[in-house]
């Protein structure tokens, strides 16, 4: 599904290397988790994969189902099946959440050569998915993320994911700011989407989320590299011991 090879990334504006050779292969149908200290480059990785400006790839490659991601526009990556649930979802005053969702769904359909979804079908679908995430009609009407609480923003990210049905979902700290019930809702939302053709990369600091969304593989990122890869136990190890030992191991 996702294949990242020796990815080196620096900031465009500054001489600052952030990713220093990331290798990561995600097979279809699997859930990978990335943990790692603050500032280790997890969000940067997710931004570079989704095509945000401001970063320069100095070496390496990233592909989604064999297509070179790095040469594509952000919208092309999305249409190819990549989705990033933002660590900090963006507020867009003046653009209604519903309009936004519908424009996105239809833009992706058009990009894939499908017909646009009718207004009625769309409405039905969005209501159904919103209900599962306990997103009320008012939140759908309001401008995108404007005045949403932290947890509402995260649920709104998952709603977008559910509507767009991407193949490769990257969740950047979707658990942060969620109360216990919301965490369950979000996890259920994610689990409902799990299937053999869809993969997840879950960035998190806490085992708590991984209790709900059971990962197949756990990676530890530090200082721009993946320094350890293991099974679900690795997350438990981090939870109890912190990153100290792992960091010491790699020197």
């Amino acid at each position: 599904m996702l294949e990242i090879r020796n990815l080196h990334v620096k900031l465009e504006e500054e001489d600052k290397q952030i990713l220093k050779g990331v290798d990561l292969t995600i097979e279809p149908g699997t859930v990978h988790a990335i943990m790692g200290p603050n500032g280790s480059g997890k969000s940067t990785l997710s931004y570079v994969l989704s095509g945000r400006d401001g970063y320069e790839v100095t070496e390496g490659s990233a592909s989604l189902e064999g297509q070179d991601l790095l040469s594509m526009e952000p919208e092309e990556r999305a249409a190819a099946g990549l989705f990033l649930a933002f660590q900090y979802p963006v507020e867009i005053p003046g653009v209604g959440n519903m309009t936004f969702l519908r424009t996105a769904v239809n833009a992706q359909r058009v990009a894939r050569g499908q017909d646009e979804m009718s207004a009625a079908d769309f409405l039905k679908l969005v209501r159904e998915k919103a209900k599962d995430l306990k997103i009320d009609a008012d939140m759908l009407k309001r401008p995108v993320n404007v005045g949403f609480s932290g947890g509402e923003k995260k649920r709104n990210e998952i709603l977008q994911m559910a509507m767009l049905e991407p193949k490769m979902c990257i969740l950047d700290e979707t658990d942060s700011g969620l109360d216990v019930d919301a965490m369950k809702l979000v996890s259920d939302g994610v689990n409902a989407l799990r299937d053999a053709g869809r993969s997840f990369l879950v960035i998190t600091h806490y085992q708590r989320l991984l209790d709900h969304i059971r990962p197949d593989i756990v990676h530890i990122m530090a200082n721009g590299r993946i320094i350890r890869t293991g099974g679900p136990d690795l997350a438990l190890e981090v939870e109890t011991n912190g990153y100290g030992d792992l960091l010491a191991e790699v020197g």
Binding site: D53, P74, E75, V90, G94, V95, F100, A111, P143, L164
Partner: peptide, 25 residues
């Protein structure tokens, strides 16, 4: 707002259309 524009594009909305949405907004 470049961040907003990227957010829209990351959902598959082409740059031109995303800009128009922000303009109308």
């Amino acid at each position: 707002d470049e961040t907003g524009l990227f957010y829209l594009r990351s959902r598959g909305i082409p740059e031109g259309e995303a800009t128009d949405l922000m303009v109308i907004a």
